[in-house]
Design a protein around this nucleic acid. Structure first.
Lengths: 152, 152
DNA sequence: AATGAAAGTTGTAGGGT
DNA sequence: ACCCTACAACTTTCATT
């Protein structure tokens, strides 16, 4: 039941309680209760308008691997990229690199500036490797709510 | 002006027109006009509830690189991962790999099943490399609306 | 937990500046 | 483009089962 509501709200965050009510077969006020509790419990963390990167002029998407040896680098690195809007994601990953960044900029010139003025400006960062995204076949923020058939 | 509205709606997709109106200094109906046009123009592509992966039981995030030689593999690969909820993103990237996937599952056992039953089940896929995400320091879908100071 | 109805807000469309 | 107004739709609360 809650899964169904979450599913619908992931797809369309503006779905009215009237519509949700019809879809799940509960009264409007019951739906209101359940959604409120989903937010209180932290299952639903927020509602956001999604913006087309291209419409915003951000035509270049890149993944940047970051490497360092000195563990002292981590704190200033995280602080810097945390306040950098061009960085959409920063993940601590296994393997030969420390971090993987997802970066959106306008052009290759701007990517170059990002690497030179933001990343290399952090003392101690030794290696980077950049992958340019040619096209994105899929990009969704909807999480699976049910177990897939290939895993039981 | 539109940038300001987009900014606010990216942060909170439930911001009322009354609040937007107060924030940008326009009448409610003007705000309504502008937001409607932003949606019509495709700048705002939709509104979505954001769900906590951990609350949904998806504790494992991984990036999976996929490689093949035969170009015939692309079509069936894209069709398969397009309909796979565990795959959040699929990017065609430069470098030694063809695609980079962002995958969310519950456990390492489920990741193993994904690689065996979904990826390796696609004929022609020759190489994969999986990076496990230990922690995500940043994960936002808010796009920058202004040019950064490190790029003029 | 779920329901129906009342009361308060908000979204939207119209005409006007 | 922007504003004001009015009505419809929606959200939220509350008493009840």
């Amino acid at each position: 039941m809650d899964r169904h509501l979450v599913d619908l709200l992931q797809r369309n965050g503006q779905t009215s309680y009237a519509e949700l009510s019809k879809a799940v077969g509960l009264a409007v006020s019951s739906v209101n209760d359940r959604v409120r509790k989903l937010v209180e419990r932290g299952v639903i963390t927020g509602y956001h308008a999604h913006v087309s990167p291209e419409a915003a002029g951000l035509d270049l998407l890149a993944f940047v691997f970051i490497g360092w040896s000195d563990p002292e680098v981590a704190a200033p690195f995280l602080e810097r990229i945390g306040s950098e809007p061009a960085v959409q994601e920063a993940h601590h990953v296994t393997g030969q690199w420390n971090y993987l960044l997802k970066v959106r900029v306008r052009t290759t010139r701007m990517l170059e500036a990002f690497l030179a003025n933001v990343i290399k400006a952090i003392p101690g960062i030794q290696r980077t490797e950049t992958l340019i995204v040619l096209s994105s076949a899929k990009e969704t923020m909807a999480l699976p709510t049910a177990l897939p058939d290939w895993f039981k």
